[in-house]
Each structure stands twice: as structure tokens, then as C-alpha cells.
Design a protein around this nucleic acid. Sequence first.
DNA 1: ACCTGAACACCGTTCAAGT
DNA 2: ACCTGAACACCGTTCAAGT
Lengths: 198, 198
Amino acid sequence: MTAEAAQGYDVRSARPKRADARRNYERLLAEARTAFTEHGTDVALEDIARRAGVGIGTLYRHFPNRTALIGAVFYGELDALLARSRELARAPQPCRALIDWLRAVIDHAGTYRGLSRAFLCAAAEGSAELTRCSEPIHRAGSALLTRAQQAGSVRADVEIADLMQLTNAIALAVEQSPGDPGLADRLLTLTFTGLKAR
Amino acid sequence: MTAEAAQGYDVRSARPKRADARRNYERLLAEARTAFTEHGTDVALEDIARRAGVGIGTLYRHFPNRTALIGAVFYGELDALLARSRELARAPQPCRALIDWLRAVIDHAGTYRGLSRAFLCAAAEGSAELTRCSEPIHRAGSALLTRAQQAGSVRADVEIADLMQLTNAIALAVEQSPGDPGLADRLLTLTFTGLKAR
DNA sequence: ACCTGAACACCGTTCAAGT
DNA sequence: ACCTGAACACCGTTCAAGT
């Protein structure tokens, strides 16, 4: 399902949204995106509603809670991340491609302050909005992981779920350490080579 | 400085606290500990004050913000973690000892829901209360790391700061995945062996 | 069917008054 | 010097009234 389809139809009734409802949905999404980018995902929802020119009640009608809104914004930006994975699936070094993609995931999570935390917490809550984001990400990562394993450059006993958990965790650590731009690379290198001496 | 000294003297004036102030401080700390254990670090501060039998203003007088309170509770429990590191410093396998200790750090962070997040965030905020906790932890970890490196079982280019960041991140991922008790072990094993095939 | 925003609930924090 | 708790500010969420 594309992002357009999700915007054009009511999720519950599966019927087309009324034109004004759809316009409000899109405005809220756009304002949420810029607000999250500027002030992080903890920004006041009332601000987002005001900037979108709708009442706070309308925001809640479209997005029952903050996580749902974060998930909807993130879902709309998945395409770039998935396109990058398809690109890297044809890169000459399968292992390098996997690491590069994990780095892209971390960078993307860093675009909104609070996103990676919401993502980690959502797994525990079982939020439908963020789960539908993590599924395509996992599939994309799985393809890159399998390719690197078949090339013999990555251990066969590594599972994508664990690797993504670790990547999310690194994204969070990186987000909390704004003064250390090289941290993401160092932690990914550590994950790749491991502690163990060769 | 011991925990007793911190309780018995006013931090700013370095003078002995009045007896009632000291008693209130200790009661707040004890109630915070149990409240954090039972309901996580997001528990209402008013509840802690009420259970300690003091006004909310008294809580704020002793602990200017939530992070300070979390830090004070955590500081009082550092001894167990540091004792474990001294024990492991004499264990036969230096590398195993390091991994076991990282596991202990993760387990300890898991005793309060929200602690590892507060810890990661505090690094960015530069909270004095939590920084004084991380220093002895880093020193203890550094000793174990150096020993494993000198034994030749851990790579020489690994730095303790990165390793602790990664460990904190794992602790957070583990906390957010209560349904997966084996996650901590799997992620630590992954950190140890690395993705790279041998 | 959808929008609005006043109203409610809740919680962190402060500070004037009291001991 | 310290304690108290009413008061304030802020924010998430709901829902009766309106279009």
C-alpha cells in the first residue's frame, strides 16, 4: 500500500475520505514533519494543529496519539530508505553494502530527535503505526544480510531482528551524543569487527 | 566520597545538614528507590514525597529535578556493581570476565524501567548527578578491558567509552523488549564476535 | 461525516508563609 | 535553615455543540 492510498482512504471504514478531511490529514502530516525536524518528537501537538490551521480535536481524530503521528510521518519517508537498500543490493561488496545501509538507517533515525526512542518504545507497546514501518525495513535489511552471508563475509548465525535492535540502540546512543559526530561509525565498526582479537 | 558523606553534608555549603533535613533526604531516597523499582523512573514525584511523609517542596529542595533524584538513587547502588568488577578482575578468563561484567551493568540498568534512558540522555545534558555515577563505572570497565586486551583476547583498538555507550544502548534495547529474555545475551555475543565471518 | 475549542485531568515546579 | 502545600503553568485528551 502506498502512502497516497493511506491518505486517501479512511483506515477503519476503508472508504474514501471526504475532501476536507483528506486535506487536513495532509496538512497535519506536513506540519508534523517540519515540527519534528525543528523541535523533535516531543513538540506540543497543539502547535502542530495550530500551524496546520485546524483544531486540536481534528488532530486527534486523524491520529489517536503521538506515536500514531510519528509513525505516519516516518512511514511517508520510508521510500528513500528502501530505495537506498535496493541500490546497495547491487553494490560490489555485500558486506560493505550492509554496513552502509545500517549507517543510512541510523542517519535517518537522527533526522528527528526522539524518533529512535519512539521506535524502540513502540516495539514494546506493539504500536500498529510503527510496526508497519519496521516490517519493510526488516525485509530490506534481511536481503542485504543474506547476501553478505552468502558471500561468506558475514557470520551465518546472525539474525536480522537482533541486528536491527542493535542498530536502533546505536541510533539512540548517537542521538544522545550530539557532540561526537564519529560515534556512529565507531560503534558500527565495533559491531562489525567485534571485541574479539583475531 | 562515600554515600553516607553525601547524605550527611549539604552539597553546596559543605556543612553538616540539620538532623530533620538529613532524615527527610534519606526517606525520599528510600521511597524513590522503591517507587522507581515498582513503577519506573517516570513515576509522579508527588507520590514519592507523599510516601516519604514530606511536602513536594521538600523533595525539590533536596533534588532540584528528576534526573538528580535518579542519579542519587543510582549512586547509592553503585557499590554492588563495583564490587562485582573487583571480583571479576581476578577471574581466570579476562575476556569472559569483561563480558560478564557488561552483562551485570545491563542487568543493573534493568532494575528500574527508564534508568538506562535517563542515563543516555544525561550524557547529553551533562547532568552532574549521573556523571559522578558513570565515572567509577568507566574506571571499573577500563580495568577489565585493559586486562582482556593485555591477555590478547580483545582487540587493542577498542576504547572503553565506546564500549560503555554500546552497552548502555543494549541495556535500553533490552528494557524495551521485555518479552525477549535472551536478547541481552545475544546482543552481547554479537558485540563480542562481531558480524564479520572468520 | 467531520471540525471546533472549551473544559477537564494531570503533573512538574515555584514561592510566600510558617516553624 | 528547613518545611509546607496552595498556586501557577503547561500539556495531553475528550466531548458537546456546530457545520
